[in-house]
Design a protein around this nucleic acid. Structure first.
Lengths: 109, 109
DNA sequence: CCAAGCCATAAGCATGCGCTTATATCTCAG
DNA sequence: CTGAGATATAAGCGCATGCTTATGGCTTGG
């Protein structure tokens, strides 16, 4: 009926350890597919498929330059996850203020 | 050598929409397995299996009372997820700051 | 004591997922 | 133009996953 929510795609994308590792690698800066293929012991198509899943979830984006495609983390990609998590702020106590401040900054452009 | 076992279990547990719905139902208060079985159109064993996954991830806990077992959200269960998310706080603020600067530059030449 | 309610586990089944190899596309070097 | 590098897509293969029905262990009401 209703199309899959952003939370579905994001949780599913981050549920896989390889995909989370790729995402965390991209946090430090842009990387081409060949770079990711070199540092993870999986084949290049596997990397491309993981990147497609992450991109479909809005977590990363690709920039084509010559023969290479450089991927980077999408800054607002984790916002739905932060929103979902903030809904349960009554259940934890620490780091809450900083997270709330961040959420407000994200919501108020 | 950072152990990512907790994140694995939590992301995997919350990746399934049924499990997330069960978790969100328990946020409002304790519910027995029979209550969850009544409100979701899946069988009772399916509910129990989802609860086992959530419990194994540290997200919920069960309290036995008579013939029923009441489940509730574990307050500190989402902390690893919040920690993982807050790890990118610097990245977010930095990127968004640069994005804001770029937007201002575009709007006000 | 006993029948019934509540729950967890087991077994089976269909589907999804992550990985592989093979191949097509696109770009640049020569 | 030709060949090589970089990437995406396709097809296939195990394996995990989510669901079902069936069953057994507890607990309580009568």
């Amino acid at each position: 009926m209703r199309s899959a929510a952003a939370e579905d795609l994001i949780f599913h994308a981050l549920a896989d350890p390889s995909r989370r590792a790729i995402f965390e690698s991209l946090v430090r800066g842009e990387l081409a597919v060949k770079d990711l293929t070199a540092r993870f012991d999986i084949s290049q198509p596997a990397v491309s498929q993981h990147l497609a899943t992450l991109r479909n979830a809005g977590l990363v984006s690709g920039r084509s330059e010559g023969r290479c495609i450089y991927y980077r983390v999408e800054p607002k990609g984790l916002k739905p996850l932060a929103d979902w998590l903030s809904h349960y702020r009554a259940f934890w106590t620490d780091r809450l203020g900083r997270l709330d401040a961040l959420l407000e900054k994200l919501e108020d452009p």
